[in-house]
């Protein structure tokens, strides 16, 4: 098993709170890896450390053997690690097409000056990128939304466009932060289908953060479980599902939330 991404002994605290403690996870190339856990388990913190929004206090993150622990988000994006956000983060004033084209930003080479000098080259480049974006539009079945401002789209469709924008980067690794959050059952199944298709068609490694175990267990090759900042289990979905520590974490959460609300 060759790991495309190694998270090695990573810790991060905010103020006095240990959000993530000594977490190590190897992400195998070409697999769908889910990181699950109750609220406040540190899942999003891990994701934010991979994409460079936070830097770990301790530990290292290696992408194909290269240390990316302290790179800025834009530098990590340039290494073809794409992500979506928990709360949809499309550029709402822009069209679906503009959003997807922005997803290809790091792949576009010609700058302002050179695009004036080599007009033809820039045009040709633009056409090639547009072609790829059109393929994604077909893939996600959003052909009739091209020119629509994203702010006007329904929730499920916006999630789909955001997935498309991340895919436009031609990512080696796709980070999805609760891609099914707030969706109804049908939308969840659609999204699960797209995730599986992406993985199958382009061999993209996918790291998925989810709150509830449901659909995730069906589509993941491997699952890591976090609780209170610690990794409490890792393995194939069937192994993790019956792991006593995992069961306890999820049941425990129910109890504490009952206490909190009561």
């Amino acid at each position: 098993m060759s790991a495309i991404l190694e998270i090695a002994d990573v810790s991060r605290s905010f103020g006095g709170v240990q959000a993530v403690q000594k977490v190590s996870v190897d992400i195998p190339r070409g697999e769908i890896m889910s990181i699950i856990g109750p609220n406040g388990a540190g899942k999003t913190t891990v994701l934010n450390m991979i994409s460079g929004f936070y830097h770990p206090d301790h530990g290292r993150i290696l992408l194909e053997g290269t240390d990316i622990t302290h790179l800025a988000p834009s530098e990590i994006a340039k290494l073809r690690v794409a992500r979506t956000f928990q709360n949809i983060a499309l550029f709402s004033g822009m069209t679906v097409l503009d959003n997807l084209m922005l997803g290809r930003h790091v792949l576009m080479k010609s700058g302002v000056l050179s695009s004036f000098i080599y007009w033809g080259l820039a045009q040709r480049e633009e056409v090639a990128h547009r072609k790829r974006v059109e393929d994604l539009i077909d893939f996600l079945k959003i052909q009739d939304l091209r020119r629509r401002p994203t702010g006007s789209l329904a929730y499920g469709l916006r999630k789909r466009v955001e997935l498309g924008r991340a895919l436009a980067l031609d990512p080696k690794i796709l980070l999805l932060d609760e891609p099914m959050g707030g969706m109804n059952q049908e939308e969840k199944e659609d999204m699960a289908r797209f995730i599986l298709d992406v993985n199958e068609e382009w061999g993209t490694t996918i790291i998925l953060i989810e709150h509830d175990m449901g659909v995730v267990m069906d589509i993941s090759d491997r699952v890591a479980v976090l609780d209170m900042g610690l990794k409490i289990a890792e393995g194939k979905p069937d192994e993790v599902r019956v792991n006593p520590a995992v069961v306890k974490a999820y049941l425990g959460e129910t109890k504490t939330s009952e206490v909190r609300h009561g």
Binding site: F53, P73, S74, A77, H105, V106
Partner: peptide, 11 residues
């Protein structure tokens, strides 16, 4: 529109 997301696009 959104600096954080722009960063994630590699901008």
């Amino acid at each position: 529109d959104n600096q954080q997301v722009a960063m994630a696009m590699g901008i």
